[in-house]
């Protein structure tokens, strides 16, 4: 039964991806990318990775879609039809995809207990985290305690993203004055 759901979800994802390539209306593409995220969130639920599914549904299907719609409001609604033919990009994509699929042939099967990832630090987390850290949700123990440095780094990345947007789009800055200053600076560089 679960295999049937897997196949149906994957088929939906393939159809969504193909539709995103074919469509030129960017509004529809953004909506489809939200649907794609929701489908992958369902995939993660099937794989029993509820924390990842939660993040994917909240960030991928929720916030990203809204932010891309916000971007669309600032730019154009439709994608221009490319004038050059796209044979070379297609070849690059096909070769990369084939290499990735070739790479998966060597990977251990999903849920294989002998897989290297289940033999490295995972047994220690499973056996010792209730005693050492405590929370029943082991994902939280790993994220916040064992891998505290990584999560600090991730939070810093989010912070940097926010600062980047503030610097680029900061609404408080008087844009006219900025433009005038930039123009003066350009003129000055032109003279020197």
């Amino acid at each position: 039964m679960e295999q049937v759901i897997d196949i149906v979800l994957l088929a939906f994802m393939v159809v969504t991806a193909l539709a995103m390539i074919a469509l030129r209306n960017l509004f529809a593409v953004v909506m489809l990318s939200g649907i794609f995220s929701l489908l992958s969130a369902s995939m993660f639920v099937l794989m029993d990775a509820v924390d990842v599914a939660f993040t994917e549904a909240a960030v991928g299907a929720g916030i990203s879609t809204v932010l891309m719609l916000g971007t669309l409001a600032l730019t154009a609604r439709a994608e221009r039809t490319p004038r050059r033919n796209s044979l070379l990009p297609l070849a690059v994509v096909v070769v990369t995809g084939a290499a990735l699929i070739y790479g998966t042939l060597d990977m251990p099967h999903f849920g294989d207990p002998q897989a290297p990832i289940h033999q490295h630090v995972a047994p220690r987390y499973i056996e010792d985290s209730p005693r050492e850290v405590g929370p029943p949700n082991m994902v939280t123990s790993v994220l916040a305690s064992y891998r505290g440095y990584d999560t600090l780094g991730e939070t810093t990345v989010i912070f940097t993203a926010g600062i980047g947007v503030l610097v680029l789009l900061g609404a408080r800055v008087d844009r006219r004055r900025c433009n005038a200053q930039a123009a003066r600076k350009d003129a000055g560089e032109g003279r020197s």
Partner: peptide
């Protein structure tokens, strides 16, 4: 983490909207 993520998301979105 929650405070930073909340503030950054609201900041990014409001800046996009205000820019528009």
């Amino acid at each position: 983490v929650g405070l930073t993520v909340w503030a950054v998301m609201v900041t990014i979105f409001l800046n996009f909207v205000e820019r528009h």
